[in-house]
Structure formats: structure tokens, C-alpha cells
Design a protein around this nucleic acid. Structure first.
Lengths: 220, 220
DNA sequence: ATATATTTTTAGACTAGTCTAAATTTTTTA
DNA sequence: TAAAAAATTTAGACTAGTCTAAAAATATAT
């Protein structure tokens, strides 16, 4: 039984809204994320439930079944591998690849994914620092901290972003912050909670709270 | 105005059935090639005509408009570039790439195609010897000969295939014939019109008329 | 705890792409 | 050149995915 482009997208979105704990996802949240109306979501949920891909009880929200989870993770694996390809091989910026990967992730063919993975050297992370599930479907989210949780005086490594919006990524580019950058938190401004940080031991700049909330970092 | 996956396929197929002279293509031929019914083809033809992509008069067959031709050639360009990628970079066999490229060819994004083209080193031919249209849409079909037109005693270069069926390509693999092979026609068998040929100055073997008809060759 | 607000589902409809069966047009053939 | 055959189009219907409007269920707030 083959899943459609649209079905795969629902599963992927349920996965991401569901979070690590596999919490229930609401119809409205899905309508928001899929840019459709709640009524359309309900229709699709009945269909996915019939196919055994989600647990669904009317009015109670949904969670993925084990099968549904597997499908979702395969799509995520493909999405992230294609993003690596687009950035590493074709020279796209990390702010340019999301929409194209949204299309490529639905190309069917197990062998294509595995050959692509090998060609890319079995990367563990995509250009935004998101972990790439392995061929068996194991997806281990590394427990990065958010920059807002870093103490003044700490030096950390920039490992990923929570927001993938092109405008946010371009802002980071202009700030000279990329994956692997060393960020030292120098001071937190009482007034607006912005942070003074030093990047790679060089330039010092202000990072707004909004930005800090979307930066994933790790102890060095 | 964006064309759908299905519309692009119709245009591509009309292009290929239409041939170099841009001859009219019949509804039935399209039904055959698209694996649909004639009635469905008629519906789609009305739609493509409304969009200005084909010239269509009821019962008279169709030809591509200039716009339709451009769209078709873009799809062909993408198909052939992806095939090069799959064979050259991912290590697929030339008999394995057609179906995957059928999907990839519909991924939208001009910049993706151009970056892919550059990454591949601006290849002029795909893994089956078919010419790749350039970014401007210029598609020059080289005038290869068919092996059946080669005289006994001539040595030619194998440049492409007319049949892309996996079984045919696998048969060539087993015969040791690939793009660039030197083929010397030694003898034509009166009985079944099969040809005795020598490959790369080495092994001599029989090629059936069926096979000869599908081999494109060039004077060395 | 009951009224109000919010969320979700149902009902009925629309588009794209397909189908079958029947009608029509074109082509072939005798 | 008229009848038969073949090709094509029309008519009406189906599925997937979406919509709006209205009904029903759940949550919230006095």
C-alpha cells in the first residue's frame, strides 16, 4: 500500500507537532500546519486511521501508530539527506533548500535514498543541524540546549536552529553565525534580554531574545 | 501559470511521439503512451489547448505550440540531467534510472536544474546517448545512424539506444556493448538478418535484427 | 453548574484526473 | 461511394483532496 504525497506530509507534520513524547496533535494545529481547513484535516485523519497509520478517536486528537511513525521518519530521512545534497554538492545556501527538499522527500525508491546516503558519506546531520535518521529508522534527537539557557561566561558550540525560516537563516549569515561557530555569552541585557556574544573569539554582537530562543548549542 | 505533473507528462509524450518534423499526434497514440483511455486523453487535450500549450482541433490530432514545446523540452532536460546524476554520481546502472528520473523530472525550480547541470559538468548526453537540451531549450538531435544501415566491413562507434527498456539494456550489458564501444560489422546472415559483429576489436558475437534496429551508431 | 466560547465533525459541493458506455466523426473497403 | 470499421468525442460517474456552512462535542468561565 503506497502513501500519497499528501498523506506523507500529514504524517511528517503529525510527527513534528507530536514532539519527543508523542503527544496528541489537534485538528486545528494540523489545519494550521498544512494550510488547510479543519474540515479537510478531519477527512484526511479518517483516511490515515483507516490505513492504520494513526490512532484517531473523534474529538481526541491523533498520534502516530508504529507504522505511521516509520513512514514519517523515512520522509524526514529523505528530506534531510536531500538538504545535505543541495547544500554540500549543489552549493545552495542553508536558507534556500527547504522548499526544494519538500518536493524531493516524496520521490519513492528505497535504493535511491540508500545510494544518496552513501554518496553523501552517511551524514549524521543536515545543514540546519537536525539529525538524520539512519536506514533502520533510528532517530536520536541529540539533547542540545537553547542559547537562552546558557550562563553568562560560558562558551558553547552552535549546533542547530529551531526556526528554519529563510529570513532567520539569512540573519544568522549576516551575523557570521553558522554551524560550528563558537559562541561566548558575555552579558545579558536586563532591558530586553538580548545577549552580547562573541563569535569565534572575534566579533562581539547583540543577539535578540527571539534569535537566542532559536539557536541550539552544545558544551564544547 | 504552473503546469501539473500530469500536464507535463502529456507534453513530453506529445513531443516524443511528434518526432523531429512535429507531426500530428493521435488521441489513441497518447492513450497508449499514457496508459489511459482515449476519453481521458480528449479531456486533457481540451485543457492543454485552453492553456495554449497545444494546437488542437477535434478529430485532427495535436501538435505542440511554441510554449508547449518549451515546457516539454524543459522536462526532457531535467529528465536527462537527473539520469546522468543517478548513473554518474549515485552508481545506478543505465537500465535502472528511467522510472526514478520520471519522478525527478517534475521537481520544479529553475535554479535547481542549473545547479545540477553545473555540478554534473554540463553533460551533453545522458546515459543512453540522448542529447541534453541546453538551458535555453536548444535540443539538437545528432543524426546518428541505426546499426542496420551500416555496411559490412564498416567500423562504427556505439552512441545511443532507441529502446530504453531495462531488459534491452541488460542484454547489451551481457553482450559487452556500451556507449563508446567500437562495433565492426563482419557479416549479415541472410537467414535471419542477424549481424556478426566484433566489439572493441575483441569478442565476436551475433546481434539479432531486433537489437540492431535499436542501436544508434556513428562513423569513427 | 450552566451558559458561552472554542474546537471538531458532518453535510454537501467543487476541481483534477480518470473511467465506461454511447454517440459521432473519419477512414477504409468493397 | 455507400456501408462497415476504426478513431474520437460526449455524457455521466468516480476518487482524492479540498472547500464553506452548519451541527455537535468539548472546554471555559462566571
Amino acid at each position: 500500500m503506497q502513501n500519497s504525497f499528501t498523506e506523507e506530509n500529514y504524517l511528517k507534520i503529525i510527527h513534528s507537532l507530536s514532539g519527543r513524547d508523542g503527544a496528541e496533535v489537534s485538528t486545528n494545529a494540523l489545519a494550521e500546519s498544512t494550510s488547510t481547513r479543519a474540515a479537510s484535516v478531519t477527512d484526511m485523519l479518517r483516511k490515515l486511521a483507516d490505513k492504520g497509520l494513526i490512532h484517531y478517536k473523534k474529538y481526541q486528537g491523533v498520534t502516530l501508530t508504529e507504522t505511521g511513525e516509520k513512514v514519517a521518519i523515512k520522509v524526514i530521512r529523505k528530506h534531510r539527506l536531500w538538504e545535505v545534497f543541495l547544500v554540500e554538492k549543489l552549493g545552495f545556501g542553508w536558507d534556500e533548500v527547504h522548499d526544494i527538499a519538500e518536493e524531493l522527500e516524496h520521490i519513492p525508491s528505497e535504493v535511491l535514498v540508500e545510494k544518496l546516503d552513501a554518496f553523501l558519506g552517511h551524514p549524521r546531520f543536515d545543514p540546519h543541524g537536525d539529525p538524520i535518521p539512519d536506514a533502520k529508522g533510528n532517530l536520536t534527537e541529540p539533547d542540545y540546549r537553547i542559547l537562552t539557557d546558557v550562563q553568562v561566561g560560558e562558551k558553547v558550540l552552535m549546533m542547530g536552529v529551531l526556526d528554519h525560516a529563510p529570513s532567520f537563516l539569512q540573519h544568522l549569515d549576516r551575523s557570521g553565525i553558522t554551524l560550528g561557530s563558537v559562541i561566548e555569552v558575555r552579558e545579558i541585557n536586563e532591558y530586553d534580554k538580548s545577549a552580547s556574544v562573541q563569535i569565534n573569539g572575534g566579533q562581539t554582537l547583540f543577539i535578540s531574545l527571539e534569535v537566542s530562543k532559536n539557536l541550539l548549542v552544545q558544551r564544547r
